[in-house]
């Protein structure tokens, strides 16, 4: 297991390197002076000079690249133009809200998606299967942020059951359990919205994997032993299919994190997604590239974790 972890890390580091490299070259590919891009609109000549010095823009390209790498490796993504604070501290401050949102929706998607996928597989070819498959096609075809907008219109604007925006109620300070409840109420709509895409992907792939598993010889052998249908389904078939489920979660994590950007805008959720949005609209490129590298590292890490979980679940992957 330790060996596998090391090997996976050895595969992840070049990926992180690739992301940082990509970002470095993008900033240089962008039309105009990189210093101007990093300094924001209409900078003073002194500030431009300062930026040049900070990023070593007067140095040869390879030195700039080295400097950039070193900075990125130490979590130094520069200073936000608009906020005038270190990019990393801005990201770090907003990250927990995104973590809460992401985890809530991933838990929801995993439980419901798995249940629907298993249910569809058990009734493969029947009407229930058709309904679930059709629903899952809708789920990954309809843009999540639009579903979010509709939910806001319905549940917040029209019915006024749930808050439309934010993570906590404004102008009221709850503490303890009341605070948790308050956040929970604000969390429901964005978490559901964000969960839909992942949920349908999980349902779709779990269904296929379960159908495949249920057709394997070992299911027949276990049946011949006298194993009950329920145990066949969960202990034998699902124990095989769950590897696919976990792989899907790992592979789609990037899509989920990208999804938080739009979902956070729709629901005014104060997380990393808002950082992206603000950075885009204020042309705050140090903040944007920093948030991008940070998110990519999170995605790569999540993928590594999902690979390790798969290995723990399937002895054939372990080596």
């Amino acid at each position: 297991m330790l060996k596998l972890l090391l090997r996976r890390l050895a595969m992840s580091l070049p990926l992180v390197f690739a992301v940082v490299t990509l970002t470095f070259f993008l900033v240089r590919l962008a039309p105009g002076d990189p210093a101007a891009i990093l300094a924001g609109e209409a900078p003073s000549p002194e500030f431009l000079a300062e930026i040049r010095a900070e990023y070593g823009l007067d140095q040869p390209q390879w030195r700039q690249f080295l400097a950039y790498l070193t900075k990125a490796a130490t979590g130094d993504f520069g200073t936000s133009i608009y906020l005038g604070r270190p990019v990393f501290s801005v990201i770090w401050e907003r990250f927990p809200a995104t973590v809460v949102l992401t985890i809530a929706s991933m838990v929801l998607a995993s439980i419901l998606g798995t249940a629907l996928g298993v249910l569809a597989a058990r009734h493969a070819g029947n009407r229930l299967d058709t309904v679930i498959s059709a629903g899952s096609l809708l789920g990954y075809s309809i843009p999540g942020f639009w579903i979010g907008q509709l939910l806001v219109i319905l549940f917040a604007v029209e019915l006024d059951w749930l808050p439309a925006s934010g993570m906590t109620t404004a102008r009221v300070t709850y503490t303890g359990f009341a605070h948790v409840l308050d956040v929970g109420r604000h969390l429901i709509l964005p978490a559901v919205t964000l969960a839909i895409f992942l949920l349908t992907m999980i349902a779709r792939f779990t269904r296929t994997a379960m159908i495949e598993a249920l057709n394997q010889d070992f299911i027949l052998v276990a049946t011949a032993k006298g194993v009950s249908p329920r145990r066949l389904l969960w202990h034998h078939a699902f124990r095989n299919a769950v590897v696919t489920t976990v792989t899907v979660i790992g592979l789609e994590f990037g899509a989920v994190l990208s999804g938080t950007v739009v979902v956070e805008i729709v629901f005014g959720w104060p997380g990393l997604g808002r950082v992206f949005y603000d950075a885009i609209n204020r042309r705050d490129f140090p903040l944007l590239t920093g948030a991008f590298i940070f998110s990519s590292v999170v995605v790569i890490a999540a993928n590594t974790v999902s690979d390790l979980v798969c290995a723990a679940l399937d002895p054939r992957i372990r080596r």
Partner: peptide, 20 residues
Amino acid sequence: EVFQVLPKLLVAVVVVSLLG
């Protein structure tokens, strides 16, 4: 595989933001 893992939409966001 690398391309599959990357958060593609975020890459697109950064590219379009920077390149216009």
